[in-house]
Nucleic acid binder design. Sequence first.
DNA 1: TCTGGGGTCCTAGGACCC
DNA 2: TCTGGGGTCCTAGGACCC
Length: 426
Amino acid sequence: MKQVFALVDCNNFYVSCERVFNPQLEKKPVVVLSNNDGCIIARSNEVKALGIPMGTPFFKSTDLIKKYQIKVFSSNYALYGDMSQRVMNTLYHYTPLLEVYSIDEAFLSLTGLNPSSLRETAQVIRSTVKRATGIPVSIGIASTKVLAKLANKYAKREEGCRGVFNLTDYPHGDALLTSTPVGELWGIGRQYARYLISEGIFNACQLKDADDRWIRKNLTVTGLRIAWELRGRSCIALEEAPSPKKGICTSRAFGTPVRSLSELMEALSSYVTRAAEKLRQQNSLASIVVVYLTSGTYRGTAPAIHEATLRLPAPTAYTPHLINFAKQCLERIFQDGYRYRKVGVFLTGIVSHSQAQLNLFSEMGSHLTREKALMSTLDSINRKWGSSALSYAACGVEEKGWRMRQAMKSQSYTTRWSDIPLVKAL
DNA sequence: TCTGGGGTCCTAGGACCC
DNA sequence: TCTGGGGTCCTAGGACCC
């Protein structure tokens, strides 16, 4: 049977989240900043129209922000994560065949639906999500995921299509692909786009019609899949269940540069705590710890990155052990006299809890059970009372300069009792 | 002064096995 | 000209995504 995919994508997601709880922001220019208030990572349409590109450093755009009175927000991931869940739950009402692709996107399988009702179904989904969550979405429909991504772009761009673009009943497919620069395709980034253009392939239609062996050789199988999907042959499947992560990373740039080992240790310990939580959430253990340390700035030469790897005696998800191993790594790479910008931890060599190989020489049995029980108690308390209800002394207790700058964060409208908006009766 | 924080997949090459 | 013919595992690096 001919497959049908829909890509549902939230419009300017972070900005839309802020607008749900602050309707005065409608039709006004709004941006949301990355962690540490570093770059602009979400823009309202009004800001896009001003020509401010995605990823612009905040400090470079202060003039424009003042001139056009752009409203600025620090990122509020608790809010965006919660709103994302609401959107996804609404989508699940329409089909269980759903892949949550990112915080603001999902692929749906609409295979088997009457082709003539696809557009109408998408319109219903769109208005239901808007009514249930306040978030506007656009929907692209096509026979493959690559084409659905593209259809979604047209849905956002074309006036008059009311947020839905159905490529399966579009008669001028080739003309549309010819008008699409090759770099706009899902899976073709800057490097590949530059290469393809140097080889005379400028648009999506030319890539579609290129020679398979040539594509395979120069763009690997990933490129070949893209070409096949452009021809309408589906080869990137819908992945309903998220597969367990093979590596878990937590890292953050510091609010202000850090010079002392003790402060680095505090920051690192709190990132390890967070990474270990993610590890336990997917019922895994890690057997390799990697610590990164970044010094220098982006001006002039690239920043220097130092790293150290440690293979653990036995896989574990026990936070105190992981903190200790990470600290050993940090001690190996730390050098006095540098201004460090960032520290990070990467947990890998991940195995599922059930298949873990025990170390022959570790004391097996009771203390492992106790460690596991302690961690699940800790996790459930922190889930209930907030992520820092219980934390390790190693993570530090005073406010320190390494913590993130978030000068313009909105409230936790949906995740903290005291921040829930009040509706006043007249 | 000031530039995010996560992830995935693929390939090539080397060490080592029988 | 031509040097056996398979494998596996690991690492490093490069590309991509949001």
